[in-house]
């Protein structure tokens, strides 16, 4: 072959950095999640109103944070992929999507489990839960676009266009849902904010947030490595076919 197709999919530098981080990210994930869960579930005080159920918060709130930040990260890397045409940028958005969708799903499930004792119903059309649900739809649409194109470079561009449109829309959706909720707010629904956050709650919350981030990084590296290997395998097959 006169032309080296590998240069289109050989992100050596990314792999070197990822491989260096990977063992550490596993360790930090385990340590942070263990500490966060211990502090959250055993050390922090129970809420005077909500009792022990408030501890769901330590699983729920960081998941909601991650759901939002993973989508933002996908938007940034998709923009980078469109502008600089860097192959890893597309792959990283693709690899992040299912993880983000899982966090969103986790936030929804824990939110509704938390809602049951608080509101007396598993699902209340609370503004935040509704926005999360819509975010889940956006994730699913994004993943469906990747699955629907046979040509991966086209899929990358189409998915990037979609995620950017979604990113522009998220604040508008959030605003409209909040607003819709204040219009239709039933009197009985309490907010999830509760009283002012005390440091005994805030510390485990932040540790859990960092633990989730570290978990994301770990899974993300595994997924991107798999994507890169998959792409190389494809290249090898294609080259074999042509020789």
């Amino acid at each position: 072959m006169a032309i080296d197709l590998h240069k289109y999919a050989n992100p050596t530098r990314f792999l070197r950095i990822a491989n260096a981080i990977f063992p550490w990210s596993i360790v930090t994930t385990v340590v942070l999640l263990a500490t966060g869960l211990y502090l959250g579930l055993f050390v922090s005080p129970a809420d005077y109103q909500q009792g022990e159920t408030v501890r769901i918060m330590f699983v729920h709130v960081p998941a909601a944070w991650m759901a939002m930040s993973v989508y933002s990260m996908m938007a940034v890397s998709s923009a980078a992929g469109l502008i600089w045409k860097h192959p890893v940028a597309d792959l990283s958005a693709k690899a992040a999507a299912p993880i983000g969708a899982c966090f969103t799903f986790l936030a929804l499930v824990t939110g509704s489990l938390w809602g049951q004792p608080m509101w007396g119903a598993y699902w209340v059309w609370d503004a935040r839960l509704t926005s999360m649900l819509i975010l889940l739809f956006l994730y699913l649409g994004y993943m469906a676009v990747w699955g629907s194109f046979e040509d991966q470079s086209k899929a990358a561009k189409a998915a990037a266009i979609l995620v950017l449109i979604g990113a522009i829309n998220i604040p508008i959706i959030k605003f409209s849902v909040d607003w819709w909720n204040t219009l239709h707010q039933p009197a009985s629904v309490a907010t999830m904010d509760g009283p002012k956050i005390h440091s005994s709650i805030l510390t485990p919350l932040l540790i859990m947030g960092l633990g989730y981030t570290s978990l994301f990084v770990t899974i993300f590296i595994i997924r991107v490595r798999t994507e890169i290997l998959g792409r190389r395998l494809r290249m090898l097959r294609v080259n074999q076919l042509q020789e």
Binding site: I134, F137, S148, I173, S176
Partner: peptide, 15 residues
């Protein structure tokens, strides 16, 4: 797929 992509983005107009 079209409806999956488009409907979530229609929500603000609907509201």
């Amino acid at each position: 797929l079209l409806s999956l992509l488009v409907l979530p983005l229609y929500i603000p107009v609907l509201i």
